[in-house]
Design a protein around this nucleic acid. Structure first.
Length: 379
DNA sequence: AAACCGGGGCA
DNA sequence: TGCCCAGGTTT
């Protein structure tokens, strides 16, 4: 089998096992640019103390530099070492994080400090593989910490770096997808310099944060301009490829509007789930997923509606009111309100979760906004 | 209103 | 293992 290999196959096999896309000029240009034009005055750049580097990297996840600055300073004052942080109470830590957002970061931070003290005598490991086992530290953050603190040559790949690489190498496809992300990690690793890893890593971050921005990048000042494929192809606006918008989920619900002598029938919703614990209109069949192209098959549900209404009075008429919809974070709810009239209200209410409520009190009742709006138009 | 985001958590 | 989410900010 080996003897049948063509020369080109052999070459491919070799290049597979070695870093591909090697390009020493890329790192050289980036390092030179960083030293001259990059950011050097940030507080966490004044030390290679792993504790400070780690703290800054965690704070900078999903948070901009300007927002982090005051928190970083205050945090260091109160917790000057990993030991101080490990010994602090959760309340103290959360207090200092309060306002930064993404509070699981703070919980992971505290837990991580305790682990570093317990497992590593307060010394953050220099091996990115070990760093990555700690809570709140992923592959990219581990590489950044070890590079800045110990000079370890390891690749980062955060959102800024993805954007830079996708543009410079005109990488098509959504960078969040597995194959594209894998390809970008390969690039990031192959491009690593043999020295100046701090300036290189900082340069990647600076370039993405200051010049190679999402919108209207400053290509005229970019050290990569002559080698940027997206620039050459006039595609900086379309690269990196945006996340494919996930198709909207739709749910439908049939809701009953039973109004009699100035009162409306409401139902207490379960504590969990949408509109948890609020009063709402009684619902038939629950909220069901449906395709946007489908038409609500209301006729199938009319018997159930008739039966429910019948518990509360002598049904005389039912008619569908106009549909309305309401957008939630994860789906769009389409509601068909079904209006009923009764000639006489039964004395007994079938279940305690149903309550007759004065229409005059609707505006001050704890109802979901779209339901309240509907009822107010009927009042 | 819609895109974006590193890591965690869960199918 | 791979996908999706929570919980924020920015455009």
């Amino acid at each position: 089998m080996t003897s049948s290999r063509t020369p080109s196959q052999s070459t491919d096999a070799i290049s597979e096992s070695q870093p591909r896309y090697r390009d020493p000029e890329f790192s050289a240009a980036l390092i030179a640019w960083q030293k001259q034009h990059g950011r050097h005055a940030l507080p966490w750049q004044q030390s290679d103390d792993a504790y400070r580097v780690w703290l800054s990297e965690i704070m900078l996840q999903q948070t901009q530099v300007t927002a982090v600055l005051p928190y970083y300073q205050r945090f260091l004052q109160s917790f000057p070492s990993v030991f101080a942080l490990a010994e602090a109470s959760s309340e103290q830590v959360m207090e200092h994080w309060s306002g930064l957002g993404y509070y699981t970061r703070a919980r992971n931070l505290h837990q991580c400090a305790k682990l570093v003290v317990a497992q590593y005598q307060g010394q953050f490991p220099s091996d990115p593989v070990l760093l990555q086992e700690l809570p709140g530290i992923g592959r990219s953050t581990a590489a950044a910490i070890s590079a800045f603190s110990y000079g370890t040559i390891a690749a980062i790949l955060d959102g800024n770096v993805k954007r830079v690489l996708a543009r410079v190498f005109a990488v098509d496809g959504y960078p969040g997808s597995k194959p594209i992300e894998d390809a970008l990690w390969l690039r990031a690793q192959a491009l690593l310099p043999q020295q100046d890893i701090q300036a290189y890593t900082q340069g990647l971050m600076d370039l993405g944060a200051t010049l190679c921005t999402r919108n209207s990048p400053s290509c005229e000042r970019c050290p990569m301009q002559t080698r940027c494929l997206a620039y050459a192809q006039g595609r900086t606006a379309e690269l990196p490829v945006r996340k494919p918008k996930k198709l909207q989920k739709h749910k439908q619900a049939l809701m009953l509007v039973l109004i009699h002598e100035g009162q409306v029938l409401l139902e207490q919703r379960p504590d969990s789930g949408i509109w948890g614990g609020l009063l709402s209109l009684p619902e038939i069949g629950g909220m069901r997923d449906f395709q946007a192209t489908e038409v609500l098959a209301m006729s199938e549900q009319l018997p159930a509606a008739r039966q429910l209404f019948g518990q509360f009075g002598e049904l005389t008429e039912m008619l569908a009111l106009p549909d309305f919809s309401h957008v939630f974070t994860h789906f769009k709810l389409h509601v068909t309100p079904l209006r009923a009239s009764i000639s006489k209200r039964h004395a007994m209410v079938a279940e305690a979760r149903y309550v007759w409520t004065d229409m005059a009190k609707i505006s001050s009742a704890a109802l979901p906004a779209p339901i309240k709006t509907l009822l107010l138009t009927l009042a």
